[in-house]
């Protein structure tokens, strides 16, 4: 496992990657509020895409629909050509476990479990034995600079450390796509940058796609492409 701490954002000219996640005419409403008003978006394999926009613009809703957390009211979401918006709850759960990883702003770690157990959790849920799951989870700790924190609980770690554990957990199953919703929102700038460096470097070697929702330009700077959402619609796409 490579140590990514020294890595830096190095945007490069890329050929158009093969599409892996395709959303068409996504609409989502919460009561009277129209969160998404017909969004079309295509995300390629190994691409890092930043979804930006002001508060309430619908960027988190878009991420939740793409990740199968929310089911859109209209439109389709395809992962590698397979519709996921029509899947049942159990299938979507399995999909999230096997193909997706998540890093959220906070509250994503199970407070009762140690850092190691938290990272091993998706594997345990997949039926991997505890010893194997923890062994695979432990591999991620040195590479993410959190070696020695394996047996700490979330309450005993700093925000930056918790987010690195969350990154490890998101990557432990070898996901196709990692979804990150304001992953640095609760961190200071230095810790935030460290987390993003680790995340972008970790996915670079494995062709993992990253969709990151943020309103911070610093975070968006790690992306290959920025999608700007405003009032539930895409108002612009900016290549980095």
């Amino acid at each position: 496992m490579t140590t990514y701490l020294a890595a830096a954002p190095t945007p490069v000219e890329r050929a158009a990657p093969a599409p892996i996640l395709v959303a068409t005419d996504l609409k989502k409403r919460f009561g009277r509020t129209e969160a998404l008003r017909g969004i079309d978006v295509t995300i390629g394999r190994g691409e890092i895409v930043a979804v930006m926009g002001p508060s309430g613009s619908g960027k988190s809703t878009l991420l939740h629909c793409l990740a199968g957390i929310l089911r859109p009211d209209a439109g389709t979401v395809e992962l590698e050509g397979r519709r996921i918006d029509t899947l049942g709850e159990t299938e979507r759960s399995k999909l999230r476990r096997s193909s997706f990883g998540f890093v959220f702003q906070f509250g994503q770690l199970v407070p009762e479990l140690t850092a190691l157990e938290n990272v091993a959790l998706p594997l345990l849920l997949d039926g991997v034995s505890r010893s194997d799951a923890e062994a695979r989870a432990a591999d991620w700790f040195p590479s993410l600079g959190i070696e020695g924190l394996e047996h700490r609980r979330p309450g005993d770690m700093s925000g930056g450390q918790s987010q690195r554990v969350a990154v490890a957990r998101a990557l432990v199953t070898g996901p196709t796509v990692v979804f990150a919703d304001e992953p640095t929102g609760s961190l200071d700038s230095l810790a935030g940058e460290q987390v993003m460096e680790l995340l972008s470097a970790a996915v670079a070697s494995s062709e993992t796609t990253v969709v990151v929702v943020t309103h911070e330009a610093r975070v968006a700077a790690y992306a290959h492409r920025e999608i700007v959402v405003r009032d539930g619609r895409i108002s612009g796409v900016v290549a980095a």
């Binding site: 159990t90 759960s93 399995k94 999909l95 999230r96 476990r97 959220f104 199970v110 407070p111 849920l125």
Partner: peptide, 18 residues
């Protein structure tokens, strides 16, 4: 606290049955 924990488990892919 328990509900928060269960939500976190759902995030990483635990099914409703689990």
């Amino acid at each position: 606290r328990r509900e928060m924990r269960l939500a976190a488990l759902r995030l990483v892919g635990a099914t409703p049955g689990q």
